[in-house]
Write a protein that binds this DNA or RNA. Sequence first.
DNA 1: CTGAAAGCGCTTACAG
DNA 2: CTGAAAGCGCTTACAG
Lengths: 344, 344
Amino acid sequence: MSFSPQSPTIADVAKRAGVSIATVSRVLNGNTPVVPSTAERVQAAIKELNFVPRSAARVLASRRTSTIGLLLPEIGGWFFPSILRGIELAARQAGYDLLIHTVDVEYPLKTSRRALGMHNTDGLIVFTNSVDDDELAYLERNHFPIVLLHQTPPEGLNIPVITIENKDGAQKLVDHLIEVHDRRRIVFLRGPEGHEDSDWRERGYRESLAAHGISANENLVARGGFDETEAASTVSQLLKNGVDFDAIFAGDDLSALGAITTLQSAGYRIPDDVAVVGFDDIPLARFMSPPLTTVRAPTEQTGIEAVKQLVRLIRGEAAESITLLPTKLVIRTSCGCKPKEVVP
Amino acid sequence: MSFSPQSPTIADVAKRAGVSIATVSRVLNGNTPVVPSTAERVQAAIKELNFVPRSAARVLASRRTSTIGLLLPEIGGWFFPSILRGIELAARQAGYDLLIHTVDVEYPLKTSRRALGMHNTDGLIVFTNSVDDDELAYLERNHFPIVLLHQTPPEGLNIPVITIENKDGAQKLVDHLIEVHDRRRIVFLRGPEGHEDSDWRERGYRESLAAHGISANENLVARGGFDETEAASTVSQLLKNGVDFDAIFAGDDLSALGAITTLQSAGYRIPDDVAVVGFDDIPLARFMSPPLTTVRAPTEQTGIEAVKQLVRLIRGEAAESITLLPTKLVIRTSCGCKPKEVVP
DNA sequence: CTGAAAGCGCTTACAG
DNA sequence: CTGAAAGCGCTTACAG
């Protein structure tokens, strides 16, 4: 039903080239010397028959799947395509296929154990909370290669993690609001509950305030949900409650968008009345009005690093226990900077 | 290196349950009756040993990979995550794994034949131009199940295609500009060369003009590239050239964004001076200023349909040769409608 | 309903 | 450098 019946096998190639299947295999894998003239005959036979070795047979015989599994939460973010591209490129380059499974975050364990694991991959890249702690512990106990993306491992588990300089980026951003634009009543819009990126950004926010002798005001910390709609409703609530603020550090660019929209339709001018900044530098950030000041993370690089560390683990080498990719301030005008000063 | 050495096999389960491996296999697959009490013992053994059957062995023995391959162009669009979700959900539900490969559109053939094909999948979902015509012909000649997404098959090949009502959506949108807002000098911003979605949208545009007795003006058709930057530079060029227009139908929402940005910084008011509409209804469309009138496509559904048709082919059933998913006008204010009339 | 056995298409020691 | 052969871990006729 799936293989064409006449689909050639290694035996067909061997027969045609007049060699044993072992020799064909050696030509295919290139890891054992083969006399050039023989190799050429084999190559020719392969081409003529349009032969492609059955993956399953190779996997079974070699005990290596040459496949990396990627577990993602169902709700894909904006960075998702570029991280995926990074992972796919790096995986292919290292000789691995990529098997993807999206996880209903409500049932991380049940779904994940079945779909991707040691039975069909050599290692797993796990994105933010898409595998629960018990499952991670189980996999680690069995020395199965795993790398975490944007999530530190649960207590006691030694699993490499790839993430970005959230705290540092956030701190620099808030420093900028305070030092350059003299804002002191800065709202922070949190991401979803339990989202580590958001937690670190919040720490950066708090440390910046502290470093400038501004005492934290808990009324200024509210839910943004990494989501335009939630941020929009939170900001209207703040306005309704008469909370006094002169800037908003939205947890991500989407919530910045929601905040800006709400403020503008309530008649506030940005950045004059309220400065608004985000995090991520999604493609549309530069097109918002005003263009959004934010923090850029090297998303594609994140995926590449994840594969790099995972491949080390698969090869039995040591991996970095934490890889922290640098973030970078992107100054536009929503913070109060003038177009002249803008980084292109 | 990849399987833990002690990782249990079907033989371990059989021994523990005191049955043959054939019986374990039958319990696993549930396609042959097994006495309930025996089945329970087997299930218990499976659970105790934490046994998960090796995929490669099943594939090799059964001659079915139970895997669907997805070929994507490297440049992921906005709809990408939701289409992927649709595909993944539907694939899993139908009992298939999902193997993904992104294709450098410069070399569609070379990369694609190696990565995904009959040697490791039961069928392929091919996204816009990620496999070249010769390769498609080769696959079809071998009766390998394929479904195309947003791309009609090359001449003479009978490959099912899933796409959306591009022409109809575009036509309704332009009808709206003409009939409701009395615009007659409407610019169309094309997508990338050879992009079928764009071609169909252009046809809808032209047919709407024709239906209203407006003769096409080729000066009003220009490159938008499905891209903010390209659209922005095209629109400034139009302005510089003194081209006279009262509306822009951008090929997609991103180019609408670029157009709006450019017009506004040149001092034009939207929609009063120029109405701007897009296509796709990306998440940020409602947050643009003004909120963008556009056309919505059921992206997740597109992925689901693709899997559905592909599974039919894999099972040897007949598939719909074309599945056209409906699009829907989303009226906001960038076309000139007042907020009151806005669809929520 | 169940088991023994062949076979899926490769890789890889082991000899030579 | 090359071949014969065992074996990877399953599924599936074939008997019984």
